[in-house]
Design a protein around this nucleic acid. Structure first.
Lengths: 167, 167
DNA sequence: AACTTTACCTTGGTCGGCCAATCAATGGGT
DNA sequence: ACCCATTGATTGGCCGACCAAGGTAAAGTT
């Protein structure tokens, strides 16, 4: 993480996509910053999202968690295995459906809830330092639009047979 | 990649950092979209950045590449090993400095240059669909500010003695 | 000239993330 | 009741990305 004064100098092949390039760079830096804050709490970057959902939702089926965080099932499985081993999460088979697994944040992890929340708020402040409220709002709005664009693209990639209800 | 209609519903612990949350989600979607476009070209997401630099710079020392893309040296080493094996890159020892390695894009890979450039422009359009020029410009501006914020944070983490030019 | 520091790269390990393939259990259709 | 499609979760493999440690070569010090 060297961080040149002006962190840029776009390669010529990226000139057609300056925002895309910026998104990539910002994402890496942001994740790195999040990781630094989370490390002290015993979490790896990415795990926050699982925990945040579990803190809200209580005991849920793994499939529900997967749907909520919208990650690959295998990713969630592995993350949960690690979170279980580090004592942040408890898992047990669902009595109502013998394929399913119920996941729950442990009491220990709930002690982190407030810390993570504070860290997250901190990160937000770091991220948005020097932006006035209207700029922040505008950024949020534009990101939401971008998210929707990318979302829809991803959608008609994995569904692709959405209109074939009459097989 | 399920993509609910409205891709959101912030967990309560993330309420203090809505933009941070949006950045994370957008980043994942964006990387995913990039990956889809790049796959057809035989590149994995992330490799584009190395190739883009090499296409511009010609034969360079690996350390220069590392500085340019600002990734961990070990990351670059491994990526280059794979890129070498897939024929996108050539490496040879630097005659002037026997520790260093010179890296260069192969002629084969140069054929991809234009394709990657087009893919990248495509991605930009997908990403920014529905944003008018002034919105795009504003988004770029805000992202640049955010990048600088996160950059500086990262900087005084790894350098910490930046102001010691008069040792 | 010998020693120490610094620069350059690599290896090994860990995580998050994806895909493809698999297995078990449920549910629907006939 | 039976078969088949669907759902739920896991495993193995791969890649990007990080850190920590190591090894070699160059540069600086004395």
């Amino acid at each position: 993480m060297k961080a040149d004064p002006a962190c840029t100098d776009l390669p010529s092949a990226a000139l057609g996509g300056p925002v895309s390039h910026a998104v990539s760079r910002v994402a890496r830096l942001h994740r790195f910053a999040a990781g630094k804050l989370l490390k002290g709490l015993g979490l790896y970057p990415g795990q926050e999202f699982l925990m945040m959902y579990l803190w809200d939702a209580g005991a849920v089926r793994q499939s529900e968690l997967i749907k909520a965080v919208d990650l690959d099932p295998s990713t969630v499985t592995k993350m949960l295995q690690r979170l279980e081993q580090t004592g942040h999460v408890r898992r047990c088979p669902d009595p109502d459906d013998r394929r399913a697994v119920l996941v729950e944040a442990t009491d220990d992890s709930c002690a982190l809830h407030a810390d993570v929340e504070r860290a997250w708020t901190n990160l937000e402040e770091h991220t948005l330092a020097g932006l006035d409220p209207s700029e922040r709002k505008e950024l949020a709005r534009l990101l939401a639009k971008v998210e929707e664009n990318l979302c829809h693209e991803a959608e008609d990639c994995s569904e692709a047979e959405d209109c074939s209800e009459r097989h």
